[in-house]
Amino acid sequence: MSFDWEDLFPLVTVRKLVRDVSDHNPLLLSSGAKKNTSHQHEFRFELSWLRDDNFYPTAKRIWDQPVRADDPIDILNIKLKWLKKYFKGWGSNVF
């Protein structure tokens, strides 16, 4: 990026994302414009999930899936993303 480009687009940011499969890291370009997030729900872990008999076996099954990454931080981020994705929907439907 150049200073002229940054002057034209002051709110733009670029972020490196976690790679799932490839040896390349995807980049997320954000325009900085406010987006309508009314249809998206935040992920919130609920302690009551721990009392559900299916929680631990399901979490273990997801966690034990192999990850194609070498960096321990990437592996952790990918596994946490998988858990979040599953339990976000699970929590909405079960509780």
Rank of each mutant, 00 (worst) to 15 (best):
S48R: 08
L76K: 11
A33H: 11
N25S: 15
Y86N: 03
P66L: 14
D74Q: 14
F87S: 01
R19S: 15
V18S: 15
M1K: 06
E6I: 09
K16S: 15
Y86C: 07
L50S: 01
H39N: 11
R51Y: 07
R61Q: 13
D53R: 13
P57R: 06
K88Q: 10
F87C: 04
D70G: 14
R61V: 03
F45W: 03
S22G: 07
S22F: 14
H41C: 00
V14Y: 09
K84S: 01
R68V: 12
W49L: 01
I75G: 04
I75K: 12
F87P: 02
R68Q: 08
F43S: 05
L28H: 13
L29H: 10
F95I: 08
R68D: 10
F9S: 00
K60G: 03
G89V: 04
G91E: 01
S48Q: 05
M1R: 09
K35Q: 14
A69N: 14
K84I: 08
K60W: 03
N36T: 02
R19N: 15
T13C: 00
P57I: 01
E6A: 13
S31D: 04
L8N: 13
F43Q: 01
K84W: 02
D70W: 06
S30D: 12
T58Q: 12
K34L: 08
D7Y: 07
K81T: 14
T37Q: 06
L11G: 00
L8W: 11
F3A: 12
L28V: 08
I78F: 09
D71R: 07
P26H: 10
P66W: 01
K88D: 00
G89N: 10
D20C: 12
E46F: 00
L17V: 10
W49G: 05
D7G: 09
K35V: 15
D74F: 06
N77T: 05
W49I: 05
K34M: 06
D23M: 07
T58E: 13
Y56E: 13
F43G: 04
D20I: 09
W5E: 13
